[in-house]
Amino acid sequence: MREFVPAMLGYTVLILASTMWLKTLEGTLPRAVVTLLPVVPVGFLIRAMVRVIRDQDEFERRVDLVSIAIGGSVGTFGFFTYGMLLSAGVLPSPAAETVAIWVLPTLLFCFGVAKCAVLRHYRDQ
């Protein structure tokens, strides 16, 4: 939590600041730099997650492995299904960046839900 909370706080501040700052910028390089600012705390978030998993005992690591497998599968299945519906013209096509920006939050959300379910499964056994 000592690494996770500051990374998420940094991400939140930078995503809001960069979104507002982009409205005033012109030129490719300045816009690229400002757009990528929130990526830095996401890197620290990933580092914190890896360190937590590395330092876990076998049971906790198993729970996280099963949870990431389920969460990743559900998230990618959802995106695949969504893509198929888009390619068939069944759903209106959003901008590509709108879809791409939701991949990581979707994966993390699915992981969180799966982890709750996996922990409940082991608790009920």
Rank of each mutant, 00 (worst) to 15 (best):
S93V: 11
V42P: 08
L65N: 05
F79S: 12
L65H: 02
A7P: 02
T28E: 04
A117D: 03
E58F: 01
F44N: 08
R61S: 06
D57H: 04
V34G: 07
T98E: 09
A48P: 12
G10L: 07
I70V: 13
G43T: 11
S73D: 00
L107T: 04
L25H: 02
G78I: 07
I46N: 05
I101H: 00
V99T: 13
F79M: 15
E97K: 13
L104S: 11
V90H: 06
S73E: 00
R54C: 03
W102P: 01
G89H: 01
S87E: 12
T98N: 12
R47N: 04
R123C: 03
L91N: 13
A96V: 15
T19V: 09
G83L: 13
A117L: 13
L108T: 10
G71L: 07
I53P: 00
V66I: 15
P94L: 12
M20R: 09
L107F: 08
Y82W: 08
Y122S: 09
L29H: 02
A100D: 02
V52D: 01
G72A: 06
T28Y: 05
V113C: 12
S87Q: 13
F109T: 14
G27F: 05
W21F: 06
L45D: 12
E3N: 15
G75C: 12
I53R: 12
V63E: 06
F80C: 11
L37M: 13
R51S: 08
R2I: 12
A69G: 08
L14Q: 08
L29S: 07
A7Y: 00
R2Q: 09
L65F: 02
L119G: 14
G75Q: 08
L65M: 06
I68F: 05
R120M: 05
A48S: 15
V63Y: 01
F79A: 14
V63P: 04
M20L: 11
A96S: 14
M8H: 03
I70S: 00
L65Q: 04
L86F: 03
A117V: 14
Q56P: 00
F111G: 03
T12Y: 05
S93K: 12
L104W: 07
G43S: 10
E97S: 15
E58P: 02
H121K: 13
L45Q: 11
Y122W: 10
L14C: 10
V39C: 09
I68D: 00
G27V: 13
E97G: 15
A96H: 09
G71F: 03
R47D: 00
V99I: 15
A69Q: 03
R62Q: 07
R120W: 04
V66G: 08
A7C: 04
S93A: 12
V66K: 13
Q125P: 00
V103L: 09
A32P: 00
A100N: 06
Q56M: 10
R61P: 01
V63H: 05
A48W: 09
G78L: 07
L86Q: 03
M20N: 06
V63W: 02
M8W: 03
T28D: 03
L36N: 09
M49E: 03
R54L: 06
G112T: 14
T19G: 15
T35K: 09
P105Y: 11
P30H: 13
